[in-house]
Simulated assay, not measured.
Amino acid sequence: MPAHRLKIGLSACFSHADPTRPLFTNKTLQYVEQSIAHWLMSAGAMVVMVPCPTGETARGDVKLSHYAEWLDGVVMHGGADVWPGSYGEEPLRDAWIGDRVRDLYDLAVVEAFVQAGKPIFGVCRGMQLINVAFGGTLYQDIEEQHGHPETLRHRDAETYDRNYHEVEIVQGSRLSHLYRGVLRGRVNSIHHQAVKRLAEGFAIEAWSLPDRVPEAMRRQGGSYIAATQWHPEFREEEANTLDDTPLLMDFMAACNAAKAHPPKPRHSLPGHLRDRAARLLRQALLMRR
């Protein structure tokens, strides 16, 4: 029955107003990528996009906190680069300027779900954004900044989701419990930014090989927050990549637990969470500035 299914939020991607676009000319689009919605639906969940409530066409009084109270969990999915200003840096190149408006929205979504005590799972940009939300920083570009003598090419525009590398799972972590007996796995790699300084209260659960870029992270204590740098929803069995099922089931179990025993909303947030996001978001228009 629909009433018994989990309701999982999915953060929105943005296509900003563009006067040259032939369809929806000069209109802001919010959308989700099909694969990740279907991934969540494969576990029987009802997937709901969480639209940004602010912008030049905003009406009504719906807030992100209303979604956080109503939904059982949220997934922060991939997309544009994170704006370096979100973690106190200047873009080193114009190409790495990212999407400031989406950052404000995503940070506010994380803030709302943390305050509601609901589970959060991040994918690719989602992992980077969660790290930034809790005070961490990013490599603006792995190849230019990471400095390992065997730095991998973590993003290939031609092969896209068929660009692969190995990861090493940190033994003793929750991830190693999910993948018992697995020391290494193969994953897709579609990013050029990555976690640099890890946020306080989190632990790395997987590293890329051989260059040791963070590939999975999890909050230690507090409400459930976990993330992977790879896209589990893009998995293809013939590519012999790490099974996505344990990750999905772990997140769903956390959402079921939150549904069965609703957490008490927090009236205050952890001091290291960038809790200015909702206030800034209310001031922001859905357009680049």
Rank of each mutant, 00 (worst) to 15 (best):
Q283D: 09
V50C: 09
G172M: 09
R180Q: 15
G126D: 03
R212N: 11
N256E: 13
W230K: 02
H66D: 15
R197G: 06
D156V: 07
G55W: 00
G44D: 10
E150S: 11
P119C: 10
T25Y: 08
L129D: 01
L40H: 04
L269E: 08
R218Q: 14
T245H: 10
N188F: 04
D161S: 11
Y105N: 03
Q145P: 09
N26W: 07
M49F: 04
L286S: 03
P22T: 05
D211V: 08
N256Q: 14
V62L: 15
G78V: 00
K63Q: 15
R184F: 14
R155N: 12
D243F: 01
Y164S: 09
D81C: 05
Q34L: 13
A253L: 11
A253E: 14
G122S: 09
S35W: 02
F134E: 00
H267Q: 14
H77N: 12
G44F: 09
E158G: 02
M287D: 10
H148W: 05
M287N: 08
Y139W: 14
E238G: 08
K63R: 15
Y224Q: 06
I190Q: 01
R212D: 08
E236F: 06
A277E: 01
G9A: 07
L104Q: 08
V74R: 00
P84E: 04
S208L: 04
T28E: 10
F121Y: 15
T151M: 02
R279M: 11
M76H: 04
D18Y: 10
L23Q: 12
H154R: 05
V213N: 01
G126Y: 00
A37Q: 13
D243E: 12
G221Q: 08
L269R: 05
G9D: 03
T245A: 12
